[in-house]
């Protein structure tokens, strides 16, 4: 059952539900070592996507990713806004003229995550969303190319995302606002890493249910 952009509205709803369910936790995290707006930033982005969902659902994948990227770019702001815009525009660029199977998606995701690294001048180990997106994308690529079944792939990706979030707890932040706190940034997980993991988990859950 290949995924199509027609399912995008459901994914947006699934992600929104997950984010809203963890609203207080997200805000507490971004407040502890950031500036407390991460939840609202994502919510603004998700609302904008929801209001364009029907339009997006009618596009092909590259056009859909592009539209998603431009939508969040204009709606979110902050660090996460430009990073997610970069991620989705990256998916659009790298998914063009390719079949939309899991392997090509995994490749596109890795390329898009590389673009995010470049945009953020960051990499794993700096206490950011990249500590989730990088291992998740790598795990997806590895699992997809090894021909595992869908559920196993999803389980592995989710596990990588979970581990990624947890890894940020004791890190010294060297990127993002948390880095201003120096040593005081330790002991809290990163809000952007947490929401990346929530998104990945929500999508995985939705795919499993739909399957």
């Amino acid at each position: 059952m290949p995924l199509t952009p027609a399912q995008i509205p459901e994914f947006i709803n699934a992600i929104s539900a997950a984010i809203n369910q963890h609203a207080d936790e997200i805000t507490e995290l971004d407040q502890a070592i950031g500036d407390g707006d991460h939840l609202f930033n994502l919510q603004r982005g998700l609302e904008a996507l929801q209001s364009h969902a029907a339009e997006i659902a009618a596009l092909d994948w590259p056009a859909a990713w592009q539209k998603i990227g431009m939508t969040v770019m204009a709606a979110i702001g902050g660090a996460s806004g430009s990073l997610y815009a970069t991620l989705f525009i990256g998916l659009s660029k790298h998914g063009k003229d390719k079949p939309t199977d899991m392997r090509t998606f995994a490749e596109a995701l890795q390329a898009a995550v590389a673009a995010v690294k470049q945009r953020g001048k960051a990499d794993v180990g700096e206490k950011t969303m990249l500590d989730v997106w990088v291992p998740a994308a790598e795990t997806l690529a590895r699992a997809a190319s090894s021909g595992k079944d869908l559920n196993a792939i999803l389980d592995q990706v989710c596990a990588a995302a979970d581990a990624g979030v947890e890894s940020t707890r004791d890190m010294l932040a060297t990127k993002g606002r948390a880095s201003f706190l120096g040593e005081r940034s330790k002991g809290h997980i990163d809000a952007g890493a947490k929401t990346a993991q929530l998104m990945i988990a929500a999508i995985a859950r939705h795919i499993r249910q739909a399957a």
Binding site: G36, D37, F40, G77, A79
Partner: peptide, 11 residues
């Protein structure tokens, strides 16, 4: 002007 304490957007 962005939202409170949130950078504005490229558009």
């Amino acid at each position: 002007p962005g939202q409170v304490f949130t950078s504005p957007t490229p558009d």
